[in-house]
């Protein structure tokens, strides 16, 4: 166990965990930020996506030791009042079914739009193909990303 100083959603936090502990479990088990979801543990489903210095990152493969000193954003910190354009577009298109993957989808989508404010369909698919939605809401996710792109 060791102490790690983290900056999560703009707030300084200290956790006492093993250095290999993935950020996914630091967030969920130690900081009670459970919006970031466990889906596969091998970076193959995207449910655990967070932003590391603004880049979409699978938190199940990010050891806490590599996150120290970096800015981390989880779904809880994407916006103050849940009104990020991507979140608003998600509500407008009523995207979710079960909803479990959607935090990861939103984190991937918001990182995409930050880097590429007006993505083509192919660019959206390329950025989002790492995020599985088992309920199959892909057409709505894509439509919501386009709506959010217009707002931004």
């Amino acid at each position: 166990m060791a102490l790690f100083n983290l900056t999560i959603n703009g707030k300084k936090q200290q956790v006492d965990v093993g250095p290999s502990t993935p950020m996914l479990w630091v967030l969920r088990d130690h900081l009670n930020l459970v919006g970031t979801k466990y889906g596969c543990g091998i970076a193959a489903c995207g449910a655990c996506t967070i932003h590391l210095e603004g880049t979409a990152t699978r938190s199940c493969q990010l050891p806490v030791s590599a996150a120290e000193g970096k800015n981390i954003t989880s779904i809880e910190g994407l916006s103050e009042n849940g009104d990020h354009p991507v979140q608003q577009a998600w509500l407008e298109h009523d995207v979710p079914q079960c909803g479990y993957c959607q935090a990861g989808q939103i984190m991937s989508a918001s990182a995409l739009l930050e880097a590429n404010p007006n993505p083509s369909d192919a660019e959206i698919e390329n950025a989002m193909d790492g995020n599985i939605c088992r309920c199959g809401t892909y057409t709505r996710i894509k439509a919501a990303i386009k709506t959010a792109a217009q707002v931004k």
């Binding site: 930020l33 919006g35 979801k37 989880s74 994407l78 979140q87 009523d94 979710p96 959607q102 935090a103």
Partner: peptide, 29 residues
């Protein structure tokens, strides 16, 4: 008439809704 998911806001903001999000003081894994 189409009405939006009553839990939509909680889902898109990552609120604890799912069984796996359950936490209780003293809970073991």
């Amino acid at each position: 008439t189409s009405r939006k998911n009553v839990d939509g806001k909680k889902i898109v903001t990552g609120q604890p809704l799912f069984g796996i999000d359950t936490y209780q003081e003293g809970m073991l894994t």
